[in-house]
Design a protein around this nucleic acid. Sequence first.
DNA 1: GGAATAGTGTCTCTCAGACACTATGAC
DNA 2: GTCATAGTGTCTGAGAGACACTATTCC
Lengths: 219, 219
Amino acid sequence: MSERPQPITTVDVALFTLCQTRLSVLLARRARDPFAGSLALPGGFVHVEEDNDAAATARRVLRDKVGLTAPYLEQLETFTGKFRDPRGWSCSIAYYAVVPEARVATVAGDVVLAPVDELPALPFDHAAIIAKGAKRLRGKSSYSSLPTYLLPETFTLNELQMVYEQVMGTALEKPTFRRKIEAQGFIAAVPGQMRTGSHRPAQLYRVVAETLREFHQAL
Amino acid sequence: MSERPQPITTVDVALFTLCQTRLSVLLARRARDPFAGSLALPGGFVHVEEDNDAAATARRVLRDKVGLTAPYLEQLETFTGKFRDPRGWSCSIAYYAVVPEARVATVAGDVVLAPVDELPALPFDHAAIIAKGAKRLRGKSSYSSLPTYLLPETFTLNELQMVYEQVMGTALEKPTFRRKIEAQGFIAAVPGQMRTGSHRPAQLYRVVAETLREFHQAL
DNA sequence: GGAATAGTGTCTCTCAGACACTATGAC
DNA sequence: GTCATAGTGTCTGAGAGACACTATTCC
């Protein structure tokens, strides 16, 4: 093997959730230099003994630094460059995660949820990573069941529609939305279940597809 | 900076072209161990002094090992793991390129074009990289102008349709195809130009969009 | 009954799919 | 004229968008 100097390799995770119906990303305060004390995406070095691959590193980072496991985790893109890190030529394998709000509420530690279109100044190219993650999430939402990962176990059709609208940033017609969701067939009514309210209760649904479902046609 | 052992970082490039109307990928014979003498995707280490980012590494690999520049080059995914490389925990930032057949014909050196669904045995996880690249190319083709990068400067509408059909693997209706392509507006007729044949000559077209055009609706 | 949210019926207009047609060249 | 490929006109059926309607609960 060559003795060529190697880049620094890290894994960063952009964790998305809906915080009061706004698409938000989790930021954690950095414990170490560079940029110790700043808010940034949670991340860390690969532990070559412990982690079988970079996805394992991402899961470990989420577990150790934020204390949660994400129901959806996908590699986003790898951000590289000579100047993106003051320590030298670096390579950040970025992942993005999608979790329901309730699960983030249990998180301890020095973290904040920042709306993706109202971010504070961030170190490295973390703003670009978040922008790319939000773009991927928005794009993929229009033709997949990805937004269901933002919802709890059971939900109403109106809640589902609201999540799609929030993520995609467009209003949807209720009858059209229901027709298309029904045609996809990835959710099923929880029989007899209703939710209380001061008005007519809504049928509850849950996701039946075991994995992300991609649609043939956009919503 | 921590003294933690770092992964090996390389860049691999899957270069796609149409070889006699079949979607094919370029393989080069490896000069060095591991797997010296085997056919594999062209790749190499990041040169931290020379390359500003991983895309620059990919362009340098194509230039130095295959002798061409690709009109379309995009990061595909990063393949990582403890066991994918006999040298240890490694990280391959994979790119894919799309080039017209004519440009590959000029390539010197020990390279072959292998149809993507008839690959020889390949070292590392290069078969997985190619499969992922072909999947991305096929998926993206259905809603973008990506297949035009497989064509020369000017082409007929029938050639364009054939390329879409080859890449996507489905037959398309001629009037529907022409209507949709026209609606996208990313190609324009080259005025007066025709191509010879023993029958009615066809209008020649060229791409007018400066970059990849994504469609709102699939073809 | 009234208010508020849940859920459905239906009309229209667009457009993809399908097929048949016309156009233009070589011979 | 024939043959072969280039390119167009048009019908139909499916479905998205739009809007209005009915349904069910609490008060």
